[in-house]
Amino acid sequence: MNLKRLFHALVLGGSALGAANCGGGTATEPPANAGTGTGSTTLLPDGGVPPSMPGMPGGGAPGW
């Protein structure tokens, strides 16, 4: 496997996409409280996310 090619495809490909969208074209304007974290509740399709529990793993396992 050529990991350098993977770096180009994932990191540089993704970065180019992000950079191309740096100005305008946003999905919505940020709500007034965006980024403050105050009183925000994260909703998931199943109805809600419970608070992080002590000892929760800090990262997602690759499925593969």
Binding site: A20, G25, T28, E29, G63
Partner: peptide
């Protein structure tokens, strides 16, 4: 199990990206 979890997680991330005004392409 990981794929079913990831499906939920990405759905939630899409809404949160919308919430911070991320570009439509990322949502």
């Amino acid at each position: 199990r990981i794929e079913t979890e990831a499906s939920l997680r990405f759905g939630a991330l899409a809404r949160r990206l919308e919430g911070v005004g991320a570009p439509r392409a990322l949502v």
